[in-house]
Each structure stands twice: as C-alpha cells, then as structure tokens.
Design a binder for these strands. Structure first.
Lengths: 195, 195, 195, 195
DNA sequence: TATGAATGAGCCTTCATTCAT
DNA sequence: GATGAATGAAGGCTCATTCAT
C-alpha cells in the first residue's frame, strides 16, 4: 500500500505483458512474474486485474497531457503549437513502443476506457487540442467559423490512425517522420490551392 | 453448413450481443439464445467464438465496401466522391447502431482485426479511399504532392473518431449531420484562407 | 437443470464427502469425483458450493419430518408418540451414518442453518415435537403447566447430544438402544419416585 | 511467548471476531486488528489460526469448569447442586454473549472440538455433571437405576439447545429465566404426576 | 519482541467446446 | 441437422503463514 515505486513497477510490467499478449490473454501471474514479485503481491497494490489497466491508462494519459501542455506552452503561435502537438503525440508513442501497443490496440476495447472512469483523462487531452484550436481561431490563424470540437476529434482520430497503422505494421519506419505531413494536411487540407 | 441464412442469423445475433456486452463478456450461449438456437448449433456454422467475430467483421466490411464502391462510382468528380464517402460512412453506422458499437468499440482489440485475417477487408476500404484521393490528384483537384496513403489513413481516422465519439456519447445527436463538416475540413484544412 | 436424479446423486455424494472431510475442507471437485461427474457439472444443478449444503439440509430435514409425521400419526397416544419420535430420531441417524455425521457435526457451524433459509425446516421438526407435547397436555398425560416450547427444545437437545456423542464416539454401539432410556428420562425425570 | 496478557488479548479479540463472522470467515488479520496488534504478532503467541480456537475453547471451558465446581461445592444437596449447575450454565453464557455465540454456534464444527485435543475439557464438564448425578443416586435423591452417563449427556444437550435457541433468537429475552424450568423438567420429567 | 509486506498454494467458478442422442 | 447436458482447463483472487527489518 505504501510503496508507490512498486505499484509503478507493476504498471510497467503490465504494459509489457499487455503489449505482448493483450489484456484478456494476459494472466495476473504473468504480470507478477514480469515485475519480479509473487502474484498475490499484485493485490496489495491493485484491487483487480481491471484496476491495473485503468490505473495504467489514467497515469500514462495524465503524464502525457502534462508533458504536452508544458511543451505547447513554449511555442509562440497556434500553428507551431499544433505542429508541436502532433510531433509530440508521435514521439511519445515512438519512444514507448509497448505503451503504444497497449494504448493503440488494447485500450480500445469496450466499455472501459473512453467510457467509465478514465474518460476524464481522455477529455483532458481533447481539451488540450481544443484549446490550441480556439487560440488559433482567436488569433485569426484558423477559420473564423471552425467547429473546434469536431476538428479536435478529427485531428486526434487522424493521429491515432497513423499511429495505429504504425504499430500494426510492426513499426518498420519512423513514426515521427509523419508528424510534419500530418500537421500540414490538417492545417491546409487536401485540396489543391486555388480550388 | 447447408443453411447460409442461419449463419446469417447467428452473425446478426452476435452483433446485438457484442454491442450489448462486449466480445469478451459475451457468451456463446448468449448469442445462441439471441439467435433462437441451441448453443451447440453455433458450432455447426462457426469453428470458434472468434470465428464469429472475424466472419462478422469480414462480411460487414465487404458489404460496406461494395456499397461504398457502388455509390461513389455514381458521383461525377473526386470531391463529390469524397463527400459521398464520408456521408456514407456515417450513414451506415447510423443506420446500424449495434454494428456501429461493435465496429467502433469492440473490433479494435488486439491482434485480431487490423492484423490477422480481416486485414484484407480493412485494406479494401483504405484502398477505396486511396483511389478517390489518387483520382483527385490526377484530376488536379487535390494537391499534386499529396501523400495519399497518409491522407487516406487520416481521413479514415478522422471519420472513425467522430463515429466513436458519437457511439460513446450514447448517440444523442445525428451522426450524419457531421458529414459535411468533416469532409470540408479534410478538403480545406483548418487554416484561415490566405494564410 | 432437468434431471432431479442427478441433483440427488450430487447431494448424496456431498453427504459422503462432507462426512469424511467436513464442509470447509471439501472441494467441489471432490464432490464431483464422488458423484462420478465433472466438476463443472455440479454447477448445472447448484448455484454454489453453499447451495449444495443448504439443499442437502433442507431436503433431508423435510424427508425426516415427513417420515416422523407419518410414523407418529400411527401411534395411539401421546406417550407412545413421544417414544416413537425418539426411536425414529435415532434410527434415522443410525441408518445413515454419513448423514448423521454431517447433520450432527458439520451443520452446526455458524450463520447458515439454524439461521437463514433452512430455519423453516428445523422449525417444522420442533413444531412436530411441540404438537406431540401439546396433545399430551390436552390429554392429561403431561403436566398441565408444561412449558411446551422449552420442553420441546430440551428433548431435541437431549436427543441431539446423545446422537452427537454416538457419532463422535465412532459409533461403537447401537444408537437405537438408547431410545427407550432417553424417552423414559424425558418423561419421568431423574428424581427418585416420591421425592 | 513472554507476555501471557497479550495472548489473552488475542483470545478475547478472537472471541469477538468469531462471534461476528464465524471461524472460517474470520481472517487472522481481523483478529490482529481487533487486538490492536500486527497480524504477524499473532504467530508469536499461537502456532496457527486453529490453535487460537482450540486454546480459546480449552481456556474458557477450564475456567467454566473451575467456576462450576466451586459454586456447586457450596450447595448442600444434589438437587440444589443440579439447579445451581443449570443456573450457572445459563448465566455464564448470558454474561458473555460473544463467547456464547462462539461456543454455541462455531465450536460445533467438525473434527476439532469434541474430538481432538479439547475433548479433555469437554469431558471434565460432563464429568462434573455426572458426579452430581452420581451423588444424587447415592443419596437416594435420584433414581437408583439412573443411567448417569446418558442423563448427563441429556442434561447437557438440553441446556445447550436452550442456549443455542437463545443465541440464534438474537438474545431477545433473559436466558437465566429458563434455568428453573429446565432444571425442574429434568428432575421431574414431563409426565403428569401419578401417571 | 513487533511489524506488515510478501508469499504462493489453493479453490471456486466460468464458459468455450464436444458429443451422445 | 439440432440439441443442450456434460466436460475440464483455466485463472482471478484470498488469506494463512513467513521473514526481513
């Protein structure tokens, strides 16, 4: 109960195990072995197997949000903020391949994540994107009539799909290399100029 | 194996059951009851529980692709084809809320769908999007240098996220209403004109 | 669900297993093996391990009550009814040593039997004893001022302890031989005549 | 093992916990918490959880026997000794409701108490009852041909059942009030005089 | 002596799958 | 083909007991 470092070790072990086998095919004993502890010990730090997954998600998402907020604040204008956001999204996943696997593939499954408790953490990330868009609208850099909510979801979905493809494709190329293109397309659209 | 109509009934029952409880929390017996048959009968039509999900996905995806291909062919130019594609994506999901639930939420989970056998059907849909984009580039309607693969994934991801939000939000508004906005943003980007 | 004979076989197996190892030290798998079925099958007939014990108790107690009621009805007067009741109590236990072990030793433990659902069946047996006593009072054979409730409990407790001692003593003598003595002492008391 | 007072505290805590939840549903950690110590400390005073129960029973039974022996010795004749014994049996249980709960309900369960180590303490109590009866026979106050062993068991069983009913009935009346009636019925029987 | 985190054996229960009818 | 009772492997979770501090 007392040692947050051990809870952390369990979470990190769970990320590796879930990335390898998927949540439903991972056994608590696997996580324990990966963490170098006995399986009963897991239950000193988490109430259920589910609790591990939820905690994992909330923590990582919160870290991610905090990092993104910090990095974005450093950028001078909405466009560069947006580019920074995309770059960061990809680099976070690229630097933590197991986490990427879990987040992109395992966490989608039903009724647990976008619904339920962790929704707050997801919302925070959407809120971050939304605020960049709103700032851009206010600054006249983005369309005056931009439906920011819809646009935020679209950007998230776009980044997400690019990342998912990369994960499913066994990560054979560098994800970060897509950041510029993705941001540009989101900013400028696919249409040819002057059309 | 004689009666394809019964296999179909099982698939439709599975869609309702998975939508309600999620794949892992649905029991084969639930699907059988929903289909009005005995649980053993399921195994006369499907090898495993997994097979139901995979079949479900392949069939629905193939239907969807066929429909989309047909509808798009009727459109005169790449831009209207793309708009049609987005509208169709949303209207298919809107008309089949249970299917939407399954596709948007359940099918994401690990190691089964975008990987594995059904990947072909997913590819076909991506290919469809890609071909529209390529046609647009060839026609000079889309950027000459458009990275079509990336753009196709982005559009898919954007539509997907909008649909997911709608499903998770208990479908309290009309999804189709978003089609125009989504298509426009994809076409024109978020940037203000002349920037 | 359908075959009461199999449920019965499970109950009978459970009696043997509980008699041998005690309820808490018996595993569901033991009961299944004793019944010659797979352990999962137990759950087609009983909701939980507890349910087996409760059902066992209720059924056996109900049988016992029915038998006792029938036998007692055949006796002409309250005193012979009471003697018959005692004789029957002991002969039932003597003929079913495993059941006796379970009833006398295992069922006493907490919070489950004299409390809870099976209390009704226990009450029925007490009620039977009480009615014999009331009949005797009405017939002038038992004390006019007899506190029948208390006397019924005392008789039950007395028989019960005699039976428990017999069970714990490895059943080295014939329990039925005690019936006459027990009945007589209950009827006449321990005091010397004319005291 | 140095501090017998702490062992005592553990026993007293165990009585409360067992009374509340039953032996099998009580955890060693519960007892430790109730005693205000760490759970490991329990094992400095008792070898196993079972050992606590056995010790509890032996100690309390020994105290009880000693008390009973003392009180009975003060009585002038066998009949008043017997009445005293019954009164004491009930008043001991009445004054210690938690102990009563444990003794009446929890201790019955299998293979541990009337069998096994604590049998000696139980025997001592039976022996005490037996000796009162023998004294009565010798003094001509009880039937010359009284089967003292059987009568002793019957009296114990009768008192026990009265007490059990009281415990299970949530102790809504005063148990001691039954002492006189129980003793009288045991002495005189249920039959009407002159029958 | 005391602690309480750690251990890991143990078991009830579920449910995908089989198969006799 | 259809049934649904039967199977039995599997795994989450508990908790008595140990032991390093």
């Amino acid at each position: 109960m007392r040692d947050p470092a051990k809870a952390q070790r369990i979470v990190e072990a769970a990320i590796r195990v879930f990335a390898r086998s998927g949540y439903y095919h991972s056994r608590v004993a696997d996580i324990a072995r990966e963490a170098g502890i006995a399986s009963g010990t897991v239950y000193l730090y988490f109430r259920t197997k589910d609790d591990i997954l939820v905690t994992l998600f909330r923590e990582k998402m919160a870290e991610w949000c905090a990092l993104a907020r910090r990095e974005i604040a450093a950028e001078p204008d909405p466009v560069s903020k947006l580019r920074r956001l995309v770059a960061l999204h990809f680099s976070v996943l690229e630097k933590s391949p197991d986490l990427a696997e879990v987040v992109q593939v395992e966490l989608r499954q039903g009724h647990k994540f976008f619904r339920g408790a962790p929704a707050a953490e997801v919302s925070a990330y959407f809120q971050l994107i939304t605020s960049v868009l709103e700032e851009g609208v206010a600054a006249g850099r983005f369309r005056r009539d931009l439906p920011v909510k819809v646009a935020a979801k679209m950007l998230f979905g776009a980044m997400d799909q690019i990342a998912t493809s990369w994960v499913l494709g066994q990560r054979t190329y560098r994800l970060s290399d897509s950041a510029g293109v993705v941001a540009s397309l989101f900013l400028e659209g696919v249409s040819a100029d002057g059309v």
